[in-house]
Amino acid sequence: MSAIVASGVSKTYRNGVQALRDVSLAVERGEIFGLLGANGAGKTTLVKVLLDLVRPSSGTTSLLDVSSRRTAARRRVGYLPEDHRFPDYHTAQSALLFYAGLSGVAPSAARPRAESLLSEVGLDDVARSKVRGFSKGMKQRLGLAQALIAEPDILFLDEPTDGIDPVGRAQIREMLEAQRRAGKTIFLNSHLLSEVEQLCDRVGILSRGQLVRVGTVAELTQTDRSLQVTLSQPPGDALVGELARAFGTARASGGCNVDLVLERDEQIDAVVDFLRARGIGLRGLSSKRQSLEEVFLDSVKAGGPAPAAPDANASPDANGAGASR
């Protein structure tokens, strides 16, 4: 049973912006799934559709096998929206107790949980201070705590480390790792590719509302039979020419390195034999990978420019989305 399922989801806002186009996706239980996309690609809309904050034009979504349209689907869900705002009359503690109450957690159970979470996110010293005096980083930490207060099975996090210093980011990554170890499913929207690379089991790339790539980081960054060969000496043009004639594509890539593109995996042995036969020492042999950033940029370029996001300050009647994307 998948934790999160989106099936053929499309969303066109009332102002005509097509935010999602036939997105299908399944996130397994206990998995950390990272969603990448340029601004306006539809990442937030997809999360909002999954949480029923935005109603899809077509398609269906479910959480833990319960249709997102049903209130019960959100019973075991925690959500940290991008640019979230807490009512400024709350203290850190009262805010957590309030959100716990909305999730149906009794105050007696919520109180110790809130204290523990505030301690985990480093806000225990300001637990009784009003939120209005908090910095952006403190609010972000509190946001993460509110997402975790009801001990959810699925976490939707939209830019969870936004505005947080590197030390805080490391702490949050550690918290998310702990959630993964506890078997929780995490759906992560982030611009920080390094964060996604470190945390996520699988990554999806959304471009112009379409899910263009999905896979593990290793799968996405793997290029087809590209091989980097490190020699004992810099390759001359003659050697590169011979390699090209023997195996197809070859080019010097600086220093003692030669990049090869093979047609079949079996050709790797032939390459080794080829070099040994010419008395050339072999210092290294690795399959060549793209960085996640390169994969992301390639995918976005292939998808074309992203549509303009609706104006965040637009009148609510001007479009159906407000600034929800």
């Binding site: 029923d52 959500y79 929206p81 807490f86 009512p87 999730s103």
Partner: peptide, 18 residues
């Protein structure tokens, strides 16, 4: 109007409350 602010209402709607 305060409740329906972007970022604030989301926090409520993501809860199991209609």
């Amino acid at each position: 109007p305060d409740l329906l602010q972007k970022g604030r209402f989301d926090l409520l709607l993501a809860r199991p409350v209609g």
